[in-house]
Amino acid sequence: MKAALLKAFGSDLSVETLPDPVPGTGETVVDVVATGVLPYSNEVFSGERQYLLDLPAVPGTGAVGQVHAVGPDATRLAVGDWVYCDPTLRSRDGAPTPDIALHGLIARGDGGLRLQRHYRQGGFAERMLIPTENAVPLGPLDPADAGRWCALGVLLVPYGGLLAAELRAGETLLVSGATGHFGSAAVAVALAMGAGCVVAPGRNERVLADLVRRFGPRVRTVRITGDEDTDRALMRRAAPGPIDCVIDLLPPAAGAAPVRTAAMTVREFGRVVLMGGVGMAGDDDLRLPYPWLMRNSITVRGQWMYPPSAGARLVGLVRSGLLDLTEFDVTEFDLDDVNDAVAHAATAGGPFEQTVVRP
């Protein structure tokens, strides 16, 4: 099979011929039709992000394709079924705290590296090997739509945070980072889950206006100033009532101040979910006042990715019509042009923009 190989950080991907993967017990091989390219892939491949990725490896995080072969313990998946390849690899032992790796991207610790070394081939390949439980059934699919279904990889991240927050229908949510790649997806997912109102702060007035155009009056935008007290007051004023929940999806470059500003808008007994990159670039970490947390009974939770059941549940939101994948503009590249795809994703990774490689 053809695959794009990253041999060393700072080098281009090279398209080469590799052996076809063979499934064992608990594994499935998928013919990749389309795979998404993360906007920050160039930062990972250059080594700038210092992700734990054992090289050489085939990158590519999440893919849409058809089942090619299954292991002996698969009882429902069949050859030809359309599936989404969930990139979150979890060890099957140590269930309370499983080791985790993101397929073709990053490992968490030594245990995650062991997973990564076995599942070495991500989505930038004609075929990939995945754990059978990571093959999320999609139902019938037009092959031309496979690239748009890759948006599941973007939507699943905030969906995991909103599940952790136990977002309820009718509640008011504030999305910190609403004008970004993952933050704008959080707006769409929250509304699909029944949020009564989503407060969307940001500096980009064009993107803020576009969120309202797409989703209507349930989105309340706020043009932030950079002053914590002023911005906190503006966010609270934009909400129709108390803010029940805050989710943060800001990247490392944003710093701690805007995260703290957004978090401290939440009501008494409110919930804050942290999924962004504060502190990862070596800058100041997030500091929230102990008295404010204690006296207001605030719940603060970190969340990395999502639970195993999230993929099937998110597909249900799409199939029901509550979540519309046609919001995404998709630009597609052949596998031979994978380096062009990575460069394109870096400059076109805004809200509802999806770069896709079609092996």
Rank of each mutant, 00 (worst) to 15 (best):
R223M: 01
G255I: 03
I243S: 03
I224G: 07
A281W: 05
E228R: 14
G255Q: 07
A192H: 09
R271D: 03
P251A: 02
G216S: 04
L234A: 15
G282S: 12
G216Q: 10
A239K: 05
L322R: 15
P242E: 13
T326I: 00
Y306I: 00
L288W: 09
L274W: 06
L250M: 15
D283E: 15
R313F: 00
D285L: 12
V300W: 01
R203G: 00
M280S: 14
D248T: 03
D227I: 04
T230P: 00
V219W: 02
T299P: 04
L211A: 10
A195V: 04
R267S: 12
T299W: 03
D283W: 02
A239P: 05
V278D: 09
V315W: 04
E268D: 13
T265F: 07
L249Q: 08
L234I: 00
E228G: 06
R287S: 11
A256H: 12
S297L: 06
R232D: 03
L211G: 10
A200K: 00
R214D: 06
L208F: 09
R287E: 13
L208R: 01
D231R: 08
L288I: 09
R267G: 10
R203M: 00
I247Q: 05
D227K: 09
R301H: 09
R223S: 14
T221C: 03
P240K: 11
M235S: 06
T230N: 05
D229R: 15
A209E: 14
V199D: 00
A209R: 14
L286F: 08
A310R: 05
V278W: 02
V222K: 03
P242H: 08
A238I: 04
R213M: 01
R236K: 15
N296M: 02
P252Y: 13
F269C: 04
L317K: 11
A190M: 09
A262M: 05
R218W: 02
V207N: 09
R267V: 05
E268M: 08
L211Q: 11
L191F: 10
A312M: 02
T225G: 11
V222R: 02
G311L: 08
R301C: 03
A253R: 14
T230M: 06
G202L: 01
A195G: 10
R203Q: 04
N296G: 12
A312D: 13
L250D: 05
L314G: 06
F215I: 01
A239V: 03
L322W: 04
L325T: 05
L288E: 09
L234M: 13
L317S: 11
V318S: 06
G321D: 12
L325W: 14
R271L: 01
D227G: 01
M275G: 06
M294D: 10
L286S: 10
R232K: 09
T221Q: 03
A262S: 15
R295F: 13
T299C: 04
L323W: 08
V219C: 05
C245Q: 11
Y290M: 07
E327N: 12
F269W: 13
R236C: 11
D229H: 14
E268H: 14
T265Y: 08
G277P: 10
Q303Y: 02
L323S: 12
T326D: 15
A254C: 09
P308E: 12
P201G: 01
L323C: 08
G311P: 07
A310W: 02
W292Q: 11
A200M: 07
D285K: 06
R287W: 14
L288K: 08
V207C: 03
G316E: 14
I247Y: 05
I224S: 15
D324S: 13
G277W: 01
